[in-house]
Computed example of a mutant assay.
Amino acid sequence: MAETDAESVRTESQGGDILCLAEFNVEQLLELTQNVSNELSALKAETEMFDKFYKRLDPKDVSPVAVSEVGASALDFNQMRSRRRSKSRSTISERLLGLNINQKLELVQRELEDSKAEARREAEHADRILQGFQATMEEAEIRSSEIKKARYELERDIGKGRKGEGVTAEKILRYMEEKLRARDSLVDKLRLKNAALKVQKKKLQMQLKQKEEMGEVLEEVDFQQLKIENAQCLERIDKRNHDLLQLKLTAGETLQVLNSYKKKLQDTTAESTNLTKEISARNEMLQRIEQEAQQVEQERAKAESVNKRLRKQLGDYRVPEVLDYIHEKMQQEELERNIRAWERKVEIAELSLKTQRRSRKQLKAANEM
C-alpha cells in the first residue's frame, strides 16, 4: 500500500499565535467553530446597525472617524496527498479599519434612542389609528341604533297595513312633520349648547390670559393633583361606560323579550279576531236555526190543528147505507154523462162559431173587393 502523510493545518490567531488544528480533538474543534460563528453573528449585527446609523446621517454631518487597526486572518486550506510528505501552507493577513469601544458605545446608544423614539412614534400612530377605528365603530353603532329606533317608531306610529292594503299618505306626512319638528328642536338645543360652550371657552381663555399676565404658574404639586383628579375622572368614566354597556345589553335583551311578547300578542290578537268572527258566524247560524225552529213549530201547530180536525171529522164520519151509496153513485155517473154531453155540445158550437167567423171574413173580403 502507498504510504499516506497526515496533513497539518495551521492558522494565525488574533494575537499572532500559531495554532495547530491537528492538536485539537473533535469537541474542541466544534467549540471553536461555534465561537467563530457567534463572533461572525455579532459582527454581522454590528455591521447592520452601523449601516442603519450611517444611512440616517446627512452627508454634511459625516466626518472622518479615528480608527484603530485590528488584525484579521483568513484561513486557506489546501490538502494534497504526495508520497514525499510535502506540506503547503498559505496565510493571508488583511488589515481592516474599525471603531473603538467608546465610538461603538456611542453609536449603540444613539441607535437605541432612535429605535425607542421610532417605537414611540409608531405606538402613538397606532393609538391614533385605533382611536379613529374605535370612534368609527362607536359612530356606526350609534347610527345603527338610531336607524333601528327610527324604524321601530315608524312601524309603531304608521303601522303595517294589512295584506293588500297600503299605508295612507296622511300618516306618512304627519310622521315626517313630527320628525322634522323634533330634528329642528334638537338642532336648536345643540346650537344653544354650542353657544354656551363657546362662551365658557372664552371665559377660560380670558382666565388663562389673566393668569399668564399676572405671572401665575402651576407648581409640580398642582400638576400631580390634576393628574390624580384626571385619573379619578377617567376611572369614573370607565365605570360609567361599563354601566352604560350593561344597560345597553339589558335594553337589548328587554327589547328582544318585548318583541317576542309583541309577536305573541299579535298572534293572540289574530286568533281572537278569528274566534270573534267565528262566534259571530255561529250566532247568525243560531239565529237562523231559531227562526227555522219557530217556523217548524208554527207549521207543526198548523199540521196538528189540521190533524185534529181531520181526526174529528174521521170520528164524526158515518158510513152510509148501500142503497144510498148506489143511488149517489148512479147520480154521479148521470152527472158525468151530462157533463160529457155538454162538453161535446160546446165543442160543436165552437166549431160552428169558427166556421161562421171564417165565412163572415170571406164575405167581408168579397164585399171589399
Rank of each mutant, 00 (worst) to 15 (best):
E39H: 13
R56P: 04
S86C: 03
K60W: 00
P64R: 11
M80L: 11
E48T: 07
V108I: 13
D114A: 14
A126S: 11
K60R: 10
S37M: 05
E48G: 02
R83D: 11
E118V: 01
S145T: 15
E23Y: 01
R81G: 11
L97I: 09
A123R: 06
A126C: 02
G71F: 05
D58F: 04
F133T: 11
R81K: 08
K149R: 14
D114N: 09
L57S: 10
M137W: 05
E118L: 10
R110Q: 08
R120P: 00
K87S: 05
V67P: 03
E153N: 10
A150R: 07
L32F: 12
E94K: 08
A140E: 09
E39W: 04
E113N: 02
Q28P: 03
D51K: 05
V70N: 08
D127T: 09
L99K: 15
L130H: 06
F53C: 04
N78W: 06
Q109D: 07
D114I: 02
S88I: 15
F24D: 00
E23S: 10
Q34A: 15
E146K: 12
K60C: 02
G159I: 02
E46Q: 07
S93K: 08
Q103K: 11
V36I: 13
L30Q: 06
R162P: 00
V70M: 10
K163Q: 06
M80N: 08
Q34C: 14
K52F: 03
R89Y: 14
E165P: 00
P59V: 13
L43N: 09
A117E: 10
N102Y: 10
I158Q: 01
L75F: 11
A117P: 00
A119N: 05
L154N: 04
E138A: 15
I101H: 12
R151A: 06
E48F: 03
T47F: 03
S93D: 10
R156F: 08
L40V: 12
K44P: 01
L97V: 12
V67F: 09
K116L: 14
R81W: 02
A72K: 14
E27M: 13
R89Q: 14
G71N: 14
E48Q: 12
R110F: 02
E106N: 04
E48H: 06
V62H: 00
E46D: 07
